[in-house]
Computed example of a mutant assay.
Amino acid sequence: MIVQRILKNTKWELLLYFLLTGSLTAVALYVGSIFGAVHVIDPRVWIYIIAGILVFILIIGYIAGQRIQRRLDYLHLNMLQVAKGNLAVRMPDTADQTFSGVYQEFNNMTEAVEKKMKLLQQFGEREVVEKEQAAEKAVLEERRRLARDLHDTVSQQLFAIHMAASSLPKVLEMNEAQAQTVLDQLIQMSNMAQKQMRALIAQLRPMELVGKTLAEALDQWFPDYCRQNGLRGMKDMDLQGDLSEAKEHQLFLIVQEAMANIVKHSGAKLVSLSLREGPRQVVLSISDDGQGFSNGAQKQGSYGLTTMKERAEKLGGNVEIISKPGAGTTIRVHIPKFEEE
């Protein structure tokens, strides 16, 4: 088992080859001395010769293995950076012919991925903008529908309440029992009007980003949402202000979806929101101190998590979910940025 683990590491595998080579060299010298090809006067000298050969070979093998492993580790680190959404990573030129081809292929691959992601992001932003335009038309139609509903329901209920209330004094003078019936009808109609009004109000959704930047909207919305839901919120934002409208819109919706999941399922008391914009990517992180969940188990709120991933993927980004039962949850979103041509 130990040998198998060693062989899985390039550095130790190379060191093992050097050690094997040194051992074969020592054996060859010893066999040569037996057949007279090598003359050693004192047999005890063989101990020092073999030990010296093995130590020398181990030192050379370790240095060679370390150099190769360092380059492989650097390549692996840059691959992880690309996987996190930092598509600006490039491998430097090297005189080593063994790695120069690999580094060049990595750079070509990353450049191709960056171009495709940029194109994907442009399509995603265009789709978001087109959906927003369609949504504006839908809002106007919805307002007309709400106006009709208000006229057909609440407005008529209020008119009926007014008529009944106006006739109540006269009915009370003429027939007290009949007045009680009218009063009961008033209570019933007012309750019905109240329910209908609440139902119509519940259909309205405020447009938090209208006329505001993402930072301004979160400055207002995040503390209010935490206060209304009994959460203690911490916010850290570093935005340069050059995000496109589509990116701001999708990031704001992801924040809303994540906070709704926290309120519904986590049982958290503390929420931390971090939003940082770098030259080549935007990183959003939302952490809570709730109950968490196991990644392998069926999770509550999985629909919300899927929605967040879809929103990020529309812009060429990705969502990383880190959670453990009893240790809270962290949602980290990486959205790449591309230089304008």
Results as ranks from 00 to 15, higher is better:
residue 87 L to A: 01
residue 88 A to L: 07
residue 88 A to D: 03
residue 89 V to R: 03
residue 91 M to R: 00
residue 92 P to L: 01
residue 92 P to F: 08
residue 93 D to K: 12
residue 94 T to A: 00
residue 96 D to M: 04
residue 96 D to I: 08
residue 98 T to R: 13
residue 98 T to N: 13
residue 100 S to P: 03
residue 106 F to T: 07
residue 107 N to T: 02
residue 108 N to K: 05
residue 111 E to F: 03
residue 114 E to W: 00
residue 114 E to Q: 12
residue 115 K to M: 09
residue 118 K to C: 07
residue 125 E to D: 07
residue 126 R to Q: 15
residue 129 V to H: 13
residue 129 V to R: 14
residue 131 K to L: 11
residue 133 Q to L: 15
residue 135 A to S: 12
residue 136 E to N: 09
residue 137 K to F: 08
residue 137 K to H: 11
residue 139 V to C: 02
residue 140 L to T: 10
residue 141 E to F: 05
residue 141 E to K: 11
residue 144 R to P: 02
residue 149 D to I: 05
residue 149 D to Y: 02
residue 151 H to I: 01
residue 152 D to V: 04
residue 154 V to C: 01
residue 154 V to M: 01
residue 154 V to D: 02
residue 155 S to E: 07
residue 157 Q to L: 13
residue 158 L to F: 03
residue 162 H to I: 04
residue 164 A to C: 05
residue 165 A to E: 10
residue 168 L to N: 05
residue 168 L to Y: 12
residue 170 K to L: 15
residue 172 L to T: 14
residue 172 L to G: 06
residue 175 N to V: 07
residue 178 Q to M: 13
residue 183 L to F: 14
residue 184 D to L: 11
residue 186 L to Q: 03
residue 187 I to Y: 09
residue 190 S to Y: 10
residue 192 M to K: 15
residue 200 L to A: 12
residue 201 I to G: 00
residue 201 I to L: 08
residue 202 A to N: 13
residue 203 Q to R: 15
residue 205 R to N: 10
residue 206 P to D: 07
residue 209 L to G: 01
residue 210 V to S: 13
residue 210 V to K: 14
residue 210 V to C: 09
residue 210 V to H: 12
residue 212 K to D: 04
residue 213 T to C: 02
residue 213 T to L: 05
residue 215 A to W: 01
residue 217 A to K: 04
residue 220 Q to Y: 10
residue 221 W to E: 08
